[in-house]
Design a protein around this nucleic acid. Structure first.
Lengths: 214, 214
DNA sequence: ACTGTTCTTGACCGATTGGTCAAGTTTTCC
DNA sequence: GGAAAACTTGACCAATCGGTCAAGAACAGT
């Protein structure tokens, strides 16, 4: 589809994406029909199919734009952080904040990861993000700031912390009145502690021999 | 439905549950039809509706049995652990092992958490599991084994680590040839470190004043 | 052996869906 | 001003689905 869109067309496409995002997040991808989307916007069915080949393509577009936005946000957040551990902490905080602001997108990505058609796309996006974060973990190991353990395992553990705390406190139980900053801080602190491990000394200590060297 | 089932009936019901579990895990809940399930078992549609009121009830039954099984497994794992931190570590390892053995159920719970109809059930099940685990976190704080921070936040962070490491290494990338025990150990170590935080001293030290007391 | 219950079959049905498309409107371009 | 393109409408359609149910088979109990 190499047809050009006018400004009016671009605006309509954005409306479809935004409305569909909200609708999918609230009711789920499968239970939401194309008719639901176009009726909600007050347009005819053909408008939908003018801009998207099918329902699945619409959803993929939403996922891709979410991934790009998050990655951009994390890159911006790391600018200026002096050392690997503070970059890791800054990345975690940026992630928590982005997810807090994009509840709908977070929900959709979580669903997409469990669905055959979309899990590949989600996986590839996450691999990029994980590779980004893992570089800092590797740097921290090389600089002797944390014990030498499997960087991928450590990075994935951090992802788990970040997404679970965000999901629970900022999306599922927002009435718990926990601030985004508090959750971001909890995530960062827990992860820094996790990187150090249970036998860790204070930051800056010389690396010590590990009984289970990897 | 208070009709009694014979042994033959019980066996058929189990077959429906097992086949549906595999089918839902592989293709997704929504894309799997009742026809898919009964055709896969080689029975007629009425068999399905003899045992279950509808498709949704079948899925709920699967979720409930999964939650009971996991909880039982974790309770067994804690027996004999002498102190809170070793109970926490034992619970984490049990969780990882259970999830490794129940890939299908793990997948279904992950999906169910994102779906309107089932997320309530998943949430309640998780709250029970979280409350169980949080008791040990609270004990550890009270015994001065870890700094005094929000136990619920700490417990949720551990859940995030456990599920993400399991999901990634044992389900998504099984060809990475990482053993279940290694992942269980990584999860336990990361979490113990996370509980201690980045300023932690060795286990057994007196609790020190925290600059951000909660 | 007969009755009652459990288990089973698969045609059937109303409802819903994703997607198509002829026709019309609006806008753009020359 | 007219032609072309973009945008829009909503009826239509084949396919699929969840669930029902009359009828039959198998089994259990007396």
């Amino acid at each position: 589809m190499s047809r050009r869109l006018t400004d009016r067309g671009e605006e309509r496409r954005r409306q479809l994406l935004a409305y569909a995002t909200a609708r999918f997040a609230e009711h789920g991808y499968h239970p939401t029909s194309v008719a639901d989307i176009v009726n909600g916007l007050g347009v005819g069915k053909g408008v939908f199919y003018w801009y998207f080949d099918n329902k699945e393509e619409l959803f993929r577009s939403i996922l891709r734009e979410a991934q790009l936005d998050l990655r951009r946000r994390q890159r911006d957040a790391l600018a200026g952080a002096p050392d690997p551990l503070s970059r890791i902490a800054a990345g975690i905080r940026a992630s928590v904040r982005w997810s807090a602001e994009h509840h709908e997108l977070f929900t959709l990505v979580a669903f997409a990861a469990t669905d055959d058609r979309f899990s590949g796309l989600v996986r590839r996006g996450q691999e990029v993000a994980v590779a980004d974060a893992m570089r800092h973990v590797t740097d921290a190991i090389e600089q002797g700031l944390i014990p030498d353990r499997n960087p991928l395992e450590l990075t994935r553990a951090m992802f788990g912390v970040t997404s679970e705390l965000t999901r629970h406190f900022l999306h599922q139980e927002p009435e718990a009145a926990v601030s985004v900053d508090e959750i971001a801080e909890t995530a960062a602190q827990f992860c820094l502690g996790g990187l150090l491990g249970p036998d860790a000394r204070g930051a800056g200590d010389q690396p010590v021999a590990s009984s289970s060297r990897s």
